[in-house]
Design a binder for these strands. Structure first.
Lengths: 147, 147
DNA sequence: GTACGACTTAAAGTCCACTTTAAGGCAAGG
DNA sequence: CCTTGCCTTAAAGTGGACTTTAAGTCGTAC
């Protein structure tokens, strides 16, 4: 199978042809050989795209994947490349995870503690720091219930 | 303080003026009163923006924040609005968190187990399912070391 | 009267990873 | 010869949340 068209490759790796053209355009794939204007690929492109797909799955951007391929001295081992980028990505992901945990905590507090009638009221509470979740809000709430 | 200019409001809530104009444009803020062409605000806009900022902090998109304001029957309590949207958002965030955990697991496996010399080699392994992390990859690795 | 600073608008630009569109080329089959 | 189907290119569009730019207005200070 030395000569595949772009759509054959696309099918094999689960991408759209346009994505493959795009990867070539941004330099992630080498310029493909053309036969009467049409791209022809051999199996090495499948391995290349497998790496790209796996890297995407690991959360890498196309920019970072370009670094994986071209951002090291030519002799650098693949495992070394992966390690360097992966450690960096793990740090990033931990930051993202932490941000998500913060949002989850705040959302649960909101569900549990907000008793505001109006968003205007809620906004006042937040503006003087901490709508639903705060004691001040609860105190206001008590006042409201009494009236 | 019944009349603030846009930059005064922006300073108070920690936004750029352009963001406030944008919020007006997409209907998140009501059209502000103009005095000789310039927007003038009273303190209620600070409460409105406090709600917007808090909602952003909770992970809501501007679209969703618009729903918070306008996506309920007019009498709906603020707490009810927050609850409905927050529960939905918690589900979304849990999905995101799960995706991140998957990436973290795969990244750690990659760091720990990939011994590939070349990305081409790595790609072959992934293409026949599972570069670094798999047993097949390890076996290939053994073969390579012997040769 | 003119320079300054802060404001206005509409429109375009940014980032990311593509997809879609428009206009066209090429080979095989009927 | 003409249709069909797959391919090509460059350019524009998508979504989200804004920012930036260009060109202009307004009031105030000097």
């Amino acid at each position: 199978m030395p000569q595949m068209t772009i759509s054959t490759v696309a099918r094999q790796v689960g991408l759209q042809s346009s994505a493959i053209r795009y990867y070539e355009q941004i330099g992630l794939l080498p310029r493909a050989q053309r036969i009467s204007g049409q791209r022809r690929y051999d199996t090495t492109v499948l391995h290349r795209l497998a790496v790209v797909q796996r890297a995407r799955q690991l959360g890498f951007t196309l920019q970072e994947i370009r670094q994986l391929f071209f951002g090291f001295r030519p002799g650098a081992r693949a495992s070394e490349r992966w390690q360097k980028l992966s450690r960096k990505k793990l740090v990033e992901l931990e930051a993202q995870a932490s941000a998500i945990r913060t949002m989850q905590r705040l959302l649960r507090e909101m569900i549990e503690k907000c008793r505001c009638d109006s968003l205007e009221q809620c906004g006042k509470g937040i503006f003087s720091s901490g709508c639903a979740p705060t004691a001040s809000r609860v105190r206001e709430d008590v006042k409201r219930r009494r009236s």
